[in-house]
Simulated scan of single mutants.
Amino acid sequence: MRYSFLEAKITERGIKKAAISAAIGVTPKSFNNKLTGKSPFTWPEVQTIQKRFFPDLDKDDLFQQQAI
């Protein structure tokens, strides 16, 4: 499962993945693993990403998973 909606919004808004990974305290590789569903997002990570980068979007919408 991957987070295609989140990936699309990151691209659409021109947000650097490195900025998000730094904000949640993980390496860019770890963040990519989370986006592709190889490792899970923690609840604090979800909250941080939504509040800092996407305050106008609902967490459930932002973190909906898509089958690969």
Rank of each mutant, 00 (worst) to 15 (best):
residue 53 F to A: 06
residue 41 F to H: 08
residue 42 T to V: 02
residue 29 K to R: 13
residue 47 Q to Y: 05
residue 45 E to T: 04
residue 47 Q to A: 12
residue 56 D to N: 13
residue 10 I to S: 10
residue 41 F to A: 07
residue 61 D to T: 14
residue 52 R to L: 11
residue 53 F to N: 03
residue 44 P to K: 11
residue 47 Q to S: 11
residue 68 I to G: 14
residue 14 G to E: 07
residue 8 A to F: 02
residue 51 K to E: 11
residue 51 K to L: 04
residue 40 P to N: 15
residue 41 F to G: 13
residue 64 Q to D: 06
residue 33 N to P: 01
residue 63 F to T: 02
residue 56 D to S: 14
residue 63 F to S: 12
residue 14 G to T: 01
residue 39 S to A: 14
residue 40 P to A: 14
residue 24 I to M: 11
residue 39 S to I: 07
residue 3 Y to V: 00
residue 33 N to K: 08
residue 16 K to R: 15
residue 63 F to A: 07
residue 63 F to I: 04
residue 34 K to N: 07
residue 24 I to D: 08
residue 7 E to G: 13
residue 42 T to R: 15
residue 23 A to D: 09
residue 41 F to V: 01
residue 31 F to V: 05
residue 32 N to L: 03
residue 24 I to Y: 10
residue 14 G to Q: 08
residue 6 L to V: 01
residue 32 N to A: 11
residue 54 F to I: 00
residue 46 V to W: 03
residue 62 L to K: 12
residue 9 K to H: 06
residue 55 P to M: 08
residue 32 N to Q: 12
residue 34 K to T: 02
residue 55 P to V: 01
residue 63 F to R: 10
residue 12 E to M: 09
residue 63 F to V: 04
residue 42 T to M: 06
residue 49 I to M: 08
residue 58 D to L: 09
residue 34 K to P: 05
residue 61 D to C: 03
residue 54 F to A: 07
residue 14 G to K: 12
residue 23 A to W: 01
residue 12 E to Y: 01
residue 62 L to N: 10
residue 62 L to G: 10
residue 23 A to Q: 03
residue 38 K to L: 07
residue 29 K to F: 05
residue 30 S to K: 11
residue 21 S to A: 15
residue 53 F to R: 00
residue 64 Q to V: 11
residue 8 A to V: 00
residue 36 T to Q: 13
residue 67 A to F: 04
residue 15 I to M: 11
residue 29 K to S: 14
residue 61 D to L: 14
residue 27 T to Q: 06
residue 15 I to G: 11
residue 26 V to K: 14
residue 15 I to K: 06
residue 26 V to G: 09
residue 28 P to D: 11
residue 49 I to R: 09
residue 35 L to H: 10
residue 34 K to L: 04
residue 53 F to C: 02
residue 51 K to G: 05
residue 17 K to Q: 15
residue 18 A to F: 03
residue 23 A to E: 11
residue 52 R to P: 00
residue 55 P to W: 05
residue 47 Q to G: 03
residue 53 F to Q: 02
residue 55 P to C: 11
residue 2 R to I: 04
residue 64 Q to F: 05
residue 50 Q to F: 02
residue 35 L to V: 01
residue 53 F to I: 01
residue 27 T to R: 12
residue 10 I to R: 13
residue 60 D to Y: 09
residue 48 T to P: 02
residue 60 D to T: 05
residue 54 F to P: 02
residue 13 R to W: 01
residue 15 I to D: 10
residue 14 G to I: 00
residue 54 F to V: 00
residue 24 I to W: 12
residue 61 D to W: 07
residue 56 D to Q: 14
residue 54 F to M: 03
